[in-house]
Design a protein around this nucleic acid. Structure first.
Lengths: 208, 208
DNA sequence: TTATTCAGCGTACACTTGTACGCTAATTGA
DNA sequence: TCAATTAGCGTACAAGTGTACGCTGAATAA
């Protein structure tokens, strides 16, 4: 029955992470968490925290990594969904919104800490979002756009979707469908606009 | 030469506000400001702060109001600019980016506190942004769109522009022109997309 | 078996925080 | 002129913070 030391260590590490995530909320950002409170809720002494993380920042980085992983999984899920038919945009937005509503704390962490106060965390969040954008860029590029405009499309779409996610969390559940619907509409604008500008030829500006 | 009491009061009130704004930075959000530090830098005793604001939140609301005002002035400026000829989108984006670079702290306040931890502040920021969106909606609507799609366009555009603003502040100055250029491109996508979808008729969905 | 490692603990310290309270001095209004 | 008002101050306090330090007991390695 004896649990190995490494096993036990991993367990309390998780307890710390879970404690932190569970303490995140609308009125409590990661930046406002305290090491002591996180430790307390994880069921360990404050000083034991240091056996697992150098400081709160390191914990934050771990959380962001975890969020990034979750996001990537969600995207894979979306891909599987629309491969079975259905609108790409609609499916993606719906999947994303599902994610934000299932993991509000995780989404908020990404959204808020993107403009947060510690450099390391901001960089980490940015990396995750960039990953998200690049993935989408590849998809768009495969449809026949050059890299530059594909990236612009992808970035705009991500901005819109993240915005909708935040809006959705702030909105009353009864209005979420509408936010979602609008986001879909907005992404369609972007897609259609890129298509129309792409096809109508490069006016005067010198794109290669 | 004696300054009236109300005059003096207004002066230190401003000192407090300025102190707060000047303390905002990439690594210091409004939420992480302390009443004591703000007071100290304003040159008054900590407890004197209360002669002007009930608490930090009230100061925050004041700051947001001020930011909103600044934003509105900027928009008016933009309007004047493109009334003298020039692309609406290009001019607006350029003006906005100018604003973020001239008042980085103020912009960051809006951007970050939008997902901040105090309800009152979030609401206030949201109001300012909504104002921004509505103003743009009116403009778009005047060009011939129905309210719903005009709003969707405006919201998407604001999301993209705010995103670009934040990106620009994080980027090295040498790359800002590129961020700006991309934002312009993205707004054109949205405008063109709305136009194309608007003209090609409502497929099947039942919009009135 | 014996020696080593190390997760977890409790204490202690030096800060910083918000704010209650009462005082002072100068402007204001009568 | 005299009384009222009030911006600003300093002190004091309770509550919270991060973290240095040394100990303990159990799992591991020899």
């Amino acid at each position: 029955m004896a649990v190995s030391r490494t096993e036990q260590k991993e367990k309390t590490r998780r307890a710390i992470i879970d404690s932190a995530i569970s303490q995140l909320s609308v009125e409590k950002s990661f930046a406002s968490l305290s090491l002591r409170e996180v430790a307390r809720q994880a069921g360990i002494a404050a000083t034991s925290f240091y056996r697992h993380f150098k400081d709160m920042e390191e914990l934050g980085l771990t959380l962001v990594d975890e969020c990034g992983l979750a996001l990537r999984q969600i995207m894979r899920k979306a891909r599987k969904r629309f491969e079975k038919g259905g609108s790409v945009i609609r499916t993606s937005v719906k999947t994303f919104m599902e994610f934000t509503e299932t993991n509000p704390n995780i989404f908020r962490l990404l959204f808020h800490e993107r403009s947060g106060t510690t450099h390391a965390l901001r960089t980490a969040v940015d990396r995750e979002i960039q990953f998200f954008i690049v993935e989408l860029t590849d998809y768009v590029q495969a449809v026949g756009y050059d890299h530059e405009s594909a990236f612009a499309q992808a970035e705009a779409m991500v901005a819109v979707v993240f915005n909708a996610g935040a809006e959705s969390l702030a909105a009353k559940p009864s209005q979420r469908r509408q936010v979602e619907k609008r986001a879909i509409q907005q992404l369609r604008y972007i897609a259609a606009g890129a298509k129309s500008l792409h096809l109508s030829g490069k006016k005067s500006r010198g794109k290669k």
